[in-house]
Design a protein around this nucleic acid. Structure first.
Lengths: 344, 344
DNA sequence: GAAGTATCTGACACCGGTTACCGAATTGCT
DNA sequence: AGCAATTCGGTAACCGGTGTCAGATACTTC
C-alpha cells in the first residue's frame, strides 16, 4: 500500500499499534494516559512528522483554531498596531489571525458579525473601538458562546472581556499642562460622537477647563472624525477664529498632525504661535516636525494582553495565576509641539 | 425530534425530499440538475436559512475558503493598504483573510511558510515584498499546489502569479526632474539590499545621473532600512557632508519623512535649503509639511488585483475574459518638497 | 483469593460535508 | 415499440479527527 500525502492519525495509530483514539489523547494532552503509551505514540509521531489536520479537528470540535479581529476603524496605524500586538501573543502557537473589517454604518452590521462568527466558529474574537462599544456584539458573543475581548477607552465589561485605558484622566492632565503654561484660549478637535473614546477625551478636556474656572466659548470646539482630512477642516475652522486659540488639543494624532499641517500652511510656527497636543502616540506623532506632545496610548500592550486573555484557557494550567491586566494607563509624552503662549 | 442548532445538509435534504447529494449539487452549482429540483431545494434552503458548514467543506474538499497574506514588511502603512485592497476584492464573498507575518531573518522561514500553508490549506496566498522576491516560496506553492500571487517591484513570475510596478523608470523620471531644476549634488537614501524594490529604485536613480553625465561621489549614497529610524541616521549622515547635497531621493516615504525631520531639526528649510523626493505615497507623504513630492505606488489597486487573480477561478465563468492587469505603473506626484537649489 | 475500584484503552458512532459508483428515469433514434 | 444514450438522484464510503461508553488491566482491600 503506497503511502501518499501526509500521515494521518490512522497511520500513527497503526504503526504505534494503538487505536486512533489513543493517539487523539496524546495530541490533546489527556491526563489519563499511561506514560509508556504516551512515549511510544509520541515517538511515532515524531518519526512520521505527523501533524494533526486542522480542518478535521475544527469539524469534530466545532471550533477553529483562529482568533478573529473585528474592526471598523478609520485609523490604519492603530489597526496595524493592534495586529502586531495580537500576533505577538499568538506567536509560536497554532492559532492564526483572521481579520474582518466591518461597516459600522451598515444596517446589517450585526447580522454580518453574526454570520461571520457562526460560519468561522472562531476560538475567540477581539473587537476594536468603535464596534467594541456596541453592547449588542458582546451580547451576541455570549449567545453564541464565543470567547471575546473588547478594547475601549472605558470599562464596559468584566475584566476577562475588556482591555481599557483611562483616556479621560490623562487628557485632563494634558490640558492642565497647557493651562499651567499660561494658555487660556484652548481649542478642542473632538472625535466622532459615536466613539466612546471621543466622548472620554472630550470629557477630560472639559473637566480640566472647568477645574481651572475657564469658560469655554462653544466655537472653540470643532468636530472631527479621527481622520486627517476632517482634522484639517476642523483646524482651519479654529485657526480662522479671531482671536485665535493659542493651543489646540486634538483627539487623536492624525488630527493633531492635520492641525500642524494647517498651521504651517498658513505660515504659523509651532509651538511659538500655536501649541498642539495629540492622542495615541502613533508613529506619525514622533515623525513629523516638530514632534508632537501627545498621550501615549499603550495599544500594542493592550492588544497583546487581549489576545492572551482569549488564549488563557488554552494555555490552561496556570490560567488564572498570571492574570492579564485590564486597565492600561495612558501617559502624557512631552515633546516639542507645546510651549507657553507667545505674549503673556 | 427536537431541532437544535443550525440546520445541516441533512435537514435540507429531508425536508426537500431529496438526497443530501442533490443538495450538495445545488450548493456547488452543478450543471447537471433538473431546474425544478434545484428550485425546490433552493426554496428549502432559503426557508431554513441553511448555510453550509465551512469546516465540513474544508475537510471534504481539502481546501479552506481562506486567503492568506504572508509578509515580512517593516512598513505598517503599506501592509495596511495591502489588506485594504485585498479585503475590498473579497468583500461579499465567502472568503476570509488570514494574516501571517514571518521573520525573514529566521533560518526556519521557509519551513514556517510550508507549515503554515500545509496546515491551513488556503485557497490562495499572497506574498508581499521582500518575501515575494524569494523564488523558493513560489516554488513551494507550486509544489503544494496552492494558488499564489507575488507582489513586487519587477516582474518575477508569470502574469497570473504577479503584480508588479515599474519602480526603476519612475525613479529615473523623478531624479531627472530634480536635475532639470538645476540640482547636481543629489543624495540617495537606499533601501535594504535584500529588497528587489530597493535595488530597482537605486538603479533608476543611478540611471538618471548617468544619462545626465553626473558623476556621483560614493558618499552621497546612504543606506537605510525602509524605517524612519534608519532614514533619520542616513539623512543625518548626508546632511553632515560638506558641501551638502541640495536634494535627496529617499527610497520610501518613511525615510523621506525622516529626511525632512532631520533637515528641520537642524534648522534647514524645505524645499528652500533641500529638496526631498520620496516613494510610495503613503499617508504620511501628504500629511507632513511640506507635503512630499513622491512616487505614487498604486499598492491598493495592486493588492485588489492580486486578490482577484487568486479568486478568478472561483468566480469562474468569464474567468479569463476580464483578465486582471499585472503591471501597475507608478507615477510621480508633484507636491511642495521640491524646488530649484538655492543659488544657481 | 475474591471482590471492588481506579486507571487505561479501544470500538463505534458522529461532526457535515463531498466523491465514486450505480441504478432509475427520461429522451432520442430507428 | 424497443434499445441505447443521456441525465438525474441515491447509497455508501470517505475526509481526519473527537466523544461516549463499555471492556480490560492493574491495584487495593478484606
Amino acid at each position: 500500500m503506497e503511502r501518499t500525502g501526509k500521515p494521518t492519525i490512522n497511520d500513527v495509530a497503526r504503526i504505534a499499534g494503538v487505536s486512533k483514539k489513543t493517539v487523539s489523547r496524546v495530541i490533546n494532552r489527556s491526563p489519563l494516559l499511561n506514560s509508556d503509551t504516551r512515549a511510544k505514540v509520541e515517538q511515532v509521531i515524531a518519526d512520521l512528522g505527523y501533524v494533526p489536520n486542522v480542518q478535521a479537528r475544527a469539524l469534530a470540535l466545532r471550533r477553529n483554531f483562529l482568533i478573529g479581529l473585528i474592526h471598523d476603524n478609520p485609523n490604519a496605524q492603530m489597526v496595524m498596531n493592534v495586529q502586531a500586538g495580537m500576533l505577538e501573543a499568538m506567536r509560536d502557537t497554532e492559532f492564526e489571525l483572521i481579520v474582518r473589517p466591518i461597516d459600522r454604518g451598515s444596517s446589517t452590521m450585526l447580522e454580518d458579525v453574526r454570520n461571520f462568527l457562526e460560519r468561522q466558529r472562531l476560538y475567540g474574537v477581539m473587537f476594536l473601538p468603535p464596534v467594541s462599544e456596541n453592547e449588542m456584539v458582546a451580547e451576541l458573543c455570549r449567545e453564541l458562546g464565543i470567547r471575546y475581548v473588547r478594547m475601549g477607552s472605558a470599562t464596559l465589561d468584566s475584566s476577562e472581556h475588556m482591555v481599557a485605558s483611562n483616556d479621560s484622566e490623562v487628557v485632563t492632565e494634558a490640558v492642565n499642562h497647557l493651562i499651567a503654561l499660561g494658555h487660556r484660549r484652548i481649542g478642542l478637535i473632538a472625535g466622532p460622537h459615536g466613539f466612546r473614546s471621543a466622548r472620554e477625551r472630550r470629557k477630560g478636556f472639559e473637566n480640566a477647563l472647568e477645574e481651572a474656572g475657564i469658560k469655554l466659548p462653544r466655537s472653540l470646539i470643532a468636530d472631527g472624525n479621527y481622520t486627517f482630512e476632517t482634522g484639517l477642516a476642523a483646524a482651519d475652522r479654529l485657526l480662522d477664529l479671531s482671536p485665535r486659540p493659542t493651543a489646540i488639543f486634538a483627539s487623536n494624532d492624525e488630527m493633531a498632525a492635520a492641525t500642524l499641517h494647517a498651521a504651517r500652511r498658513r505660515g504659523m510656527s509651532v509651538p511659538e504661535d500655536l501649541s498642539i497636543v495629540g492622542f495615541d502616540d502613533t508613529a506619525i506623532a514622533s515623525h513629523i516636525w516638530p514632534p508632537l506632545t501627545t498621550v501615549h496610548w499603550p495599544i500594542i500592550s493592550m492588544a497583546r494582553s487581549a489576545a492572551l486573555k482569549l488564549l488563557a484557557e488554552f494555555f490552561g494550567d496556570d490560567g488564572s495565576a498570571v492574570e492579564e491586566p485590564s486597565l492600561f494607563p495612558s501617559t502624557l509624552i512631552h515633546r516639542a509641539s507645546v510651549a507657553p503662549p507667545r505674549e503673556g
